[in-house]
Design a protein around this nucleic acid. Structure first.
Lengths: 233, 233
DNA sequence: TATAAATTTAAGGAGCTTTTCAAAAAGCGG
DNA sequence: CCGCTTTTTGAAAAGCTCCTTAAATTTATA
């Protein structure tokens, strides 16, 4: 799960970031509303924590823009009591709010609660077949985008189709012949290594260490599979 | 969000313009009521800040004309106390007012508040299905007009339909076949490049640099999509 | 260690994309 | 209804990206 924190105070940002990362979340940060908007439009974010008072664009305006396109949970942080009233009064669609200073444990708990809730009531579109998430990898079939930890990764068309096929059948092993069939939609009669070259390319883009792939595993003598090492949220 | 400032003092115009732009708004300016009226009738403006005293057409008359057609928030600026009384007394439908000299921070706050309010109570018509806004692009299905930063951009019929289709599904990738189907409403059997030509023409009209499109992105090997860069003018 | 399998690299080119241009069609005003 | 302007279409050429190919290198297994 990818969480965005937008706050102009770097101490608070870092404190929250570290605490959430300890709980297994991936965290992106922004110093102001504009930065946050840039991240939200280019990344795959599942929840946002926004300070009300920020330079360049404040939390209210940011939330309004978010709600034009998205229903992700948003948690507000406020320093002043009357800001809190605004949050409630405006009915802008914030899902939760906390007054500073707040207990970090409470924030983490509320993040968990919002994510659980949003998972339950997810729109059918978001829920099912448009985007596929496996571990910290996400592929959006509508936008034709691929994300790792919420970060977008550029892929060529063939690379994208190949990876999509793996994402649709995680952990399943495919021979090169099967993969060629699925992606190129034609038989291959002899073993050119086109498929392998593309696998190699994908590894260079998505693996931390392409020599020791964590995701795209080789099953020697048979083929390849998409594997996820680590705990599933 | 596009804001119009009408004031004959250029210092004040620029000060306000800069402050609002820092907050992520797009700003248009006018030196008098007539200029302001010209802009309001040809552009897509979401809020107006009017000086009461202006040559050619004063703020009162301008507001009266605005209210014949539009319900956008209007904020008055006044230099004299008795003008302020007029604003209140006339009941012309100004949404807020500030006496000069005013704190720029307060003006920015009030602009934000008015925009929030107008968004909440928006008529369903204005809110949803008649005009679509994505980033700094707006398309008005009723007037069949397209705006970038509030500036109208002329489009041919096919260009308009194509762009409308993209605006209705922002970020979604479409193949040329899908686009042809949606806009021309007939199958295409061979790959004439008529869709591409129209894409190219749209880019020439809406992109700052058509060579490096910010909005209409090519997804090589797959198709095209309307993207929002997150940049704010 | 030998051998087969898998991976990497780099170059050339195929195919996709863009642009341009001109002809055809459609819209507009007189 | 005719001639003018604008828009759309189609074809062809130029440009560019990424795919394919082949050869060199590394890794795994018997």
């Amino acid at each position: 799960m990818v969480i965005l924190i937008a706050d102009d105070e770097s101490d608070i940002r870092n404190l929250i970031k570290i605490s959430l990362e300890e709980n297994g979340y991936t965290v992106l940060t922004a110093q102001n509303g504009k930065e946050a908007w840039d991240i939200l439009t280019t990344h795959d974010v599942h929840l946002a924590i926004l300070d009300v008072m920020m330079p360049v664009m404040d939390g209210f305006n940011l939330l309004r823009r978010i709600r034009e396109h998205s229903t992700i949970p948003v948690i507000f942080l406020t320093a002043r009591a009357d800001d809190m009233d605004k949050v409630l009064g405006l009915g802008l669609g914030a899902d939760d709010y906390l007054a500073k200073p707040f207990s970090i444990a409470e924030l983490v708990a509320r993040v968990g609660a919002q994510l659980r809730r949003s998972n339950e009531y997810l729109l059918p579109k978001e829920k099912s077949n448009v985007s596929i998430t496996y571990g910290n990898l996400t592929i959006d079939k509508e936008k034709c985008c691929f994300f790792k930890d919420g970060e977008p990764i550029e892929l060529g068309a063939k690379e994208y189709k190949l990876l999509l096929y793996f994402m649709e059948h995680p952990e399943k092993v495919f021979t090169k012949r099967q993969l060629y069939h699925a992606v190129w939609d034609e038989d291959y009669y002899f073993d050119d290594n086109t498929v392998m070259v593309h696998i190699s390319r994908i590894r260079n883009r998505i693996e931390d260490d392409p020599q020791k792939p964590k995701y795209l595993k080789t099953i020697r003598g048979i083929g390849y599979k998409l594997h996820y090492t680590g705990e599933m949220p």
